[in-house]
Simulated scan of single mutants.
Amino acid sequence: MKRYLDFLWENRFSIILATLFLLAAGWFALQGLPESVFPNVDFPRVTVLVNDGSLPVKFMEVEITRPLEALAKGQPGVRLVRSQTGNGLTKLNVYFNPGVNPQTAYLMLQARLSQVRLPVGAQMRVTRMAPYTYPFAEYALVSNQEDSSAMMPTFAFQVRPALLAIPGVYQVQSTGRGWPQVHIDLNPVRLAQYHLTAQQVIDTLRRAQGPFFSGVLHAYHQQFIVATTPRPVDTAHLATLTLPLGPANAEGIRAPLALGALGRVQVGPPPLLTDAAVP
């Protein structure tokens, strides 16, 4: 041991010089190494998204989700199909067996799903999931008292603007049950009392939601047309909304009538059906 230490001490300058050379060589080699935030990993998973905001959940379940599930399960190599159905939204996650070529599976599934006849206005997007597909960070907004639909105002008016204010963030999307829905349960006795039908109430509500012309604004060397849309603060204000549905006078003009006089106005979460199918 003493002989080894004596050797190191006698050749200390050579050893220090060799160490410096190794450190310099390692530093230069490090500069040439390839860098990647998202490694090249193949995920045997394809996501199918069909969007049509005007269709109810039952129609989406029967006319879109079920046919897409049946075709996806019949694709060779498919291991599992998970589906989510909401108002105007159908989402499928198709998982393939290990060893399946992801690119070939994606192209074959896309061609197979194109056989489904979608409703007018519906759009389908088939995406192969990979690390480089969506450069994103995902956060969960949870609560022990409120459901996801009740927290949508917090996300839309507080969380989303704060995230968009961060430099480099160009888009913020939400995944959940969507906004709460207002349910109006019309009373058949009240409708008969005022000689109204449910369709008349629906048509009047559509005409009352605007938008309405409010004026013209000149700013920044441009001309802007200002349109406003009245939005009740809560269900109590919506129940006091007056509509021309009251008794008609001699000229056939109906008197204003509050919406709450025709039924009950309440808020409820949007429906969501979740299903998983194994071929």
Rank of each mutant, 00 (worst) to 15 (best):
K2E: 08
F7H: 08
L8K: 09
W9P: 01
W9S: 14
E10W: 07
N11M: 06
S14K: 05
S14P: 00
T19E: 05
T19S: 15
L20C: 15
F21Q: 11
G26N: 12
W27P: 01
F28H: 04
G32K: 05
S36R: 14
V37G: 06
N40T: 14
V46E: 03
N51D: 10
E63P: 07
P67L: 07
E69Q: 12
A72V: 07
V78Q: 00
L80D: 13
L80E: 13
V81G: 08
V81A: 04
Q84D: 07
L89P: 11
L92V: 11
Y95T: 10
F96R: 02
N97R: 05
N97T: 04
N97L: 11
N97F: 02
Y106V: 03
Q110D: 05
V116T: 01
M124Y: 13
R125C: 01
T127Q: 11
M129V: 14
T133F: 12
Y134D: 15
L141I: 11
E146N: 03
D147I: 04
S148N: 10
S149N: 07
M152R: 12
P153T: 11
V159M: 12
G168V: 02
V172M: 11
T175P: 00
T175E: 07
R177P: 00
G178L: 06
Q181M: 03
V182F: 08
H183M: 04
I184V: 10
D185G: 04
N187L: 06
V189L: 06
A198G: 13
A198N: 08
A198W: 00
V201C: 01
V201E: 00
V216I: 15
Y220H: 15
Y220V: 14
F224H: 08
R231N: 03
H237D: 09
T242R: 14
P244Q: 10
P247M: 04
P247L: 05
L257Q: 14
L259E: 06
L259R: 06
G263Y: 02
V265H: 02
Q266T: 13
T274D: 07
A277F: 11
